[in-house]
């Protein structure tokens, strides 16, 4: 199966996409490609252009310049969308129809057999409530119905825009479990979110956006390229800091009250480090080696950019 990795089909290609709302540039010169089988995350703070980008490729927002194409680029966008499952922001359905009736309408639009409805309602756990009117649903149920609706056509790619936004912890958990299940089946997923831990566990690839510009795109594990840091405490703080500052393996030393944080520029094992300090006569009362979470990485990345501008 390994050779297959070399010719992954591309599902969505975006080239130099720009979208302006009046004088505001929501998306600026954005390019990336989505390959089959991977799980992608689009990360960015609120207002960074995530939803606009998805809106453009989903045919509801007009691009200003640049271009994009679905699959091999030979079919029109609205035909391509029949092979895509997408939910954007809030779930939009007809309030006066029941869950089942709403899904039946989606089947009519996508040209899918009605037999799929029950199957997908079961996946999201709404089978018992299928005959209740949509307006009686809680937000979590609405969101789950939206996922069922996006799955109706067994899509090649599932696009989720902030799927857990506004949900209670229980609802968030349910949605994440469903997403994990779907990802496990090999469906390509594109997940837009400002919640990093949401993406960190699921996604293999990530595109980081800020103010409509791409800051990073690539594998998640490559993004976390740093060697981590040590959190240290000892009774002789001054001696420790001086020693660390002279050491070549550390880039930055941060002191907060009695906690010293030392950032590594090269890999180092904690036992070696401890031994080294002990030999230099420093006895630690506290030693923790950590790697930045994606969230800290992300904040660092976006902060750096702010400083540069």
């Amino acid at each position: 199966m390994a050779y297959k990795c070399y010719k992954l089909e591309s599902i969505l290609t975006i080239n130099n996409l720009t979208k302006k709302f009046g004088y505001l540039t929501a998306v600026k010169d954005l390019s990336f490609t989505i390959k089959k089988g991977n799980v992608y995350g689009i990360l960015g703070p609120n207002g960074s252009g995530k939803s606009t980008t998805l809106g453009v490729v989903l045919n509801v927002v007009n691009k200003t310049s640049g271009d994009f194409h679905w699959f091999d680029g030979k079919i029109s966008t609205h035909d391509a969308l029949k092979k895509v499952g997408a939910i954007i922001e809030r779930p939009n359905f007809y309030p006066y129809m029941s869950g089942y009736q709403n899904l039946k309408l989606v089947c009519k639009i996508k040209g899918v057999n009605y037999s799929k409805i029950e199957e997908k309602l079961k996946i999201v756990g709404l089978l018992e409530r299928k005959d209740s009117k949509f307006k009686t649903f809680s937000l979590g149920m609405k969101q789950r119905l939206a996922i069922a609706s996006a799955l109706l056509n067994d899509p090649e790619i599932l696009i989720l825009d902030e799927p857990t936004n506004g949900l209670d912890p229980q609802g968030i958990h349910q949605i994440r479990e469903i997403i994990k299940q779907i990802a496990a089946k090999g469906t390509t997923i594109l997940l837009a979110s400002h919640l990093l831990d949401e993406v960190e566990k699921v996604c293999t690839h990530v595109v980081v956006l800020r103010k409509g510009k791409k800051l990073y795109s690539g594998r998640v594990d490559e993004m976390i390229s740093s060697n981590g840091f040590f959190e240290l405490k000892c009774n002789n703080q001054e001696a420790l800091v001086t020693l660390l500052e002279r050491h070549n393996s550390f880039s930055k030393i941060k002191v907060e009250n009695d906690l010293v944080t030392a950032f590594l520029t090269e890999p180092m094992r904690s036992d070696d480090f401890n031994k080294y300090l002990f030999e230099k006569g420093i006895i630690l009362t506290h030693l923790i080696q950590r790697k930045e979470s994606l969230e800290e990485q992300f904040l660092q990345l976006t902060d750096n950019q702010t400083n540069q501008i």
């Binding site: 989903l58 045919n59 509801v60 609205h78 035909d79 969308l81 029949k82 895509v84 997408a86 954007i88 939009n92 359905f93 989606v106 639009i109 996508k110 609706s149």
Partner: peptide, 8 residues
């Protein structure tokens, strides 16, 4: 919006 996303 949803109709258009669904492929209309």
């Amino acid at each position: 919006k949803q109709n258009l996303i669904d492929g209309l």
